Simulated assay, not measured.
Amino acid sequence: MSDEPVLTYVLVDGENIDATLGTSILGRRPQPDERPRWDRLLAFARETWEQDVRGLFFLNATTTMPMSFIQALNALGFTPVPLSGDSDVKVVDVAIQRTLRAIKERDADVMLVSHDGDFLEELEALLDDDDRRVGLMAFREFRNSGFTALEDDGLESFDLEYDVKAFTSPLPRIRVIPIEQFDPSQFL
């Protein structure tokens, strides 16, 4: 790696996060105030790894271009990546896979925001570089089980709610609590 400052790319699979939140946690479509505060992801990455970040937010815009959301992402510091393709192509997944492969050729770190196992191969390849930090932001209990094996290779995992603090109010999640974090007052 060079002596230039390292950059962290934050790659967001927004549809995956929204679907997991709606289907697996809330059991309904999330209200706007129940969605992640996307700017907190960038702040977390910047503070955690103490370096500049560049956020890329991947969107499937095959049928519609969500201009108000794109403008909001721009205002938060993200670069929106609106994509289109045939209905049988997972355009967001393909674009993130290509981006992860392109990052392998750069002196950069990456934090992926997704639960999707479609990215395991690309993340594993990034972990082959001992000088590169690779992270995953997700709801721990809903991420693909393949990510657990990558932790032995150096993948850093961050929970969107508990570590990143991406939400303004607690989500109705049931989680395994490490005994050193157990606070009985939360249950009394």
Rank of each mutant, 00 (worst) to 15 (best):
D39R: 12
M137T: 13
L56K: 09
L76P: 02
E141K: 15
G154R: 00
R140S: 12
F57W: 05
V91D: 03
F182A: 13
E47K: 13
T64Q: 15
G135K: 02
I17Q: 11
R46Q: 07
Q51M: 10
V81N: 00
E141F: 00
V53H: 00
P66H: 09
L21D: 09
K165Y: 08
V92A: 07
D163L: 07
F44T: 04
K104M: 08
M65W: 14
K165R: 13
L160H: 06
E15Q: 14
L7N: 04
T20A: 05
P36W: 02
A108I: 07
L150S: 06
G14W: 02
L42F: 07
L11C: 02
R140E: 01
A43Y: 06
R46N: 10
F158L: 12
E141N: 11
L56N: 00
D118H: 00
L21H: 12
T64R: 15
R173S: 07
T148V: 15
V81C: 06
I17K: 00
I17H: 01
I103V: 10
V92R: 01
L73E: 08
D107A: 06
V92H: 05
E105G: 11
D3P: 05
Q181R: 14
Q51D: 03
S157L: 13
P80M: 08
R132S: 05
G85I: 09
A95L: 05
T79V: 09
L56Q: 12
A102K: 14
E141A: 15
E141Y: 04
D128N: 13
F187Y: 08
F44L: 03
F119H: 10
L126E: 00
R29N: 12
F158C: 04
E121I: 09
R54Y: 15
R98S: 09
G55W: 00
E161L: 07
R132E: 01
K165G: 04
K90S: 11
A138G: 05
T64P: 01
A125R: 14
R46A: 09
R35L: 13
A75W: 09
S87N: 11
N74D: 08
P80G: 08
S2T: 12
P178S: 06
L150A: 05
M137C: 15
P32I: 12
V176I: 10
M111Q: 13
D153C: 08
E161H: 06
N74W: 10
A19R: 11
F142I: 07
P170N: 08
V92C: 01
L59Y: 05
D116T: 05
F57S: 02
D33N: 12
M1I: 13
P5F: 04
L41D: 05
G77D: 11
T62H: 02
P80L: 12
V10F: 12
D33C: 04
F44R: 04
T64D: 09
S185N: 14
A72W: 02
A138N: 11
T23L: 11
M65F: 14
L150R: 04
T62S: 15
L150C: 01
F44M: 07
R140H: 14
Q31Y: 15
E122K: 03
D163E: 10
L100T: 03
R46H: 11
A45C: 08
V164Y: 04
E122W: 06
V134W: 02
R143S: 08
N60Q: 08
A138E: 01
F147A: 03
G14A: 09
V12K: 05
P172H: 03
P82T: 02
F78Y: 10
Q51G: 10
A149E: 11
Q71F: 10
F158D: 01
D86F: 14
